[in-house]
């Protein structure tokens, strides 16, 4: 009887898998695929409801059109700068904080950790507004002038707006890479460190020659998570500057460009197919980033094993 039930069609497996597969496929995979498909279609001039296949024409338009191409180039450039600030400020700072917190001699580690992570659980909307107030001339004068800092208007100048917004994002998210680095550092076998100390290695040497190579996998994960998060960012610019990413589009990221292209803004008309095309470009960039990560880091890991 037991073997009979074994051979019966395993309905239970289907029952277990169906809800997750259904929701995930319908609301994530299908929209992603369909959105890529839409980027190859355009509405016909006679009937805006009817969409016909146009091949890569939308992409060509996005890259060469007099109105669209400068926006795409601007958003790409800004997004790479945004990413660079995160890689050069957020991740080194996170590594520094994590290495301080991984020392067993530091008291109150849990308290530091919890407090430093706090901004990461708050909504970007709140963070954006809090900093907007702090950086506004109304408060800026009282807050920064006594410290001898020029009170701005930093968010109003094309040269400073994007770096400042990038730093606000760093301030909010530094806790996440810090936690990932911390976990990796705590996971290192103490005996290796002790052995190096006995051999007379300085703390600096121990960190760069032993600990850092050992946490390299985490460095890779942090880099790819930063990349995906940054090239998908939208909320902070939208909250602090609005969808037009002023001044003069200097804070425009791919996320805000996507939003404007899809929904339209002021004089610009929204277009689902062009929106899907911007999303297609973002998809390719993220794909290249993830593949590079898999190629560089995973292969190095395999070799190390």
């Amino acid at each position: 009887m037991k073997s009979a039930s074994r051979k019966a069609f395993p309905w239970h497996i289907i029952v277990f898998l169906t809800p997750a597969l259904l929701i995930y496929t319908a609301f994530m995979i299908y929209p992603l695929v369909d959105s890529l498909r839409l980027s190859l279609y355009a509405p016909t001039p006679e009937n805006p409801r009817e969409e016909i296949f146009v091949g890569l024409a939308n992409y060509q338009r996005l890259f060469t059109d007099d109105l669209l191409a400068p926006r795409l180039q601007g958003a790409l450039r800004n997004n790479f700068l945004f990413f660079a600030v995160h890689m050069l400020v957020q991740n080194p700072l996170a590594l520094l904080l994590a290495s301080l917190l991984s020392s067993q001699f530091i008291r109150g580690r849990a308290i530091y950790r919890t407090l430093i992570f706090l901004p990461s659980v708050l909504s970007v909307v709140l963070i954006g507004f809090i900093w907007k107030l702090i950086l506004s001339p109304l408060w800026g004068r009282t807050l920064f002038e006594p410290l001898g800092i020029n009170p701005g208007p930093w968010l109003g100048l094309p040269e400073t707006a994007l770096p400042i917004i990038s730093l606000v994002s760093v301030w909010q998210w530094v806790g996440v890479p810090m936690m990932l680095f911390l976990a990796a550092l705590i996971g290192i076998n103490d005996e290796i460190i002790e052995a190096a100390r006995v051999d007379g290695a300085t703390a600096w040497d121990v960190f760069w020659k032993i600990k850092f190579p050992l946490i390299l996998p985490t460095v890779g994960i942090v880099a790819v998570l930063t990349f995906v998060g940054n090239f998908n960012a939208f909320d902070l610019v939208y909250t602090m500057q609005g969808a037009l990413a002023p001044p003069d589009f200097s804070t425009d990221l791919l996320g805000t460009l996507f939003y404007r292209t899809f929904f339209g803004f002021q004089l610009q008309l929204g277009s689902p197919t062009m929106g899907a095309t911007v999303a297609g470009v973002m998809f390719m960039i993220i794909l290249v980033g993830v593949l590079l990560y898999l190629f560089i880091f995973q292969r190095r890991l395999l070799r190390a094993e």
Binding site: Y30, P31, L32, D34, S35, V224, A279, F283
Partner: peptide, 21 residues
């Protein structure tokens, strides 16, 4: 693997089609 795809690809990129759906 199919389920894991969604870990790295942001769902936001499918917004145009999500809205239509």
């Amino acid at each position: 693997l199919y389920m894991a795809l969604g870990i790295m690809v942001p769902i936001r990129l499918g917004t145009v089609s999500i809205l239509r759906l």
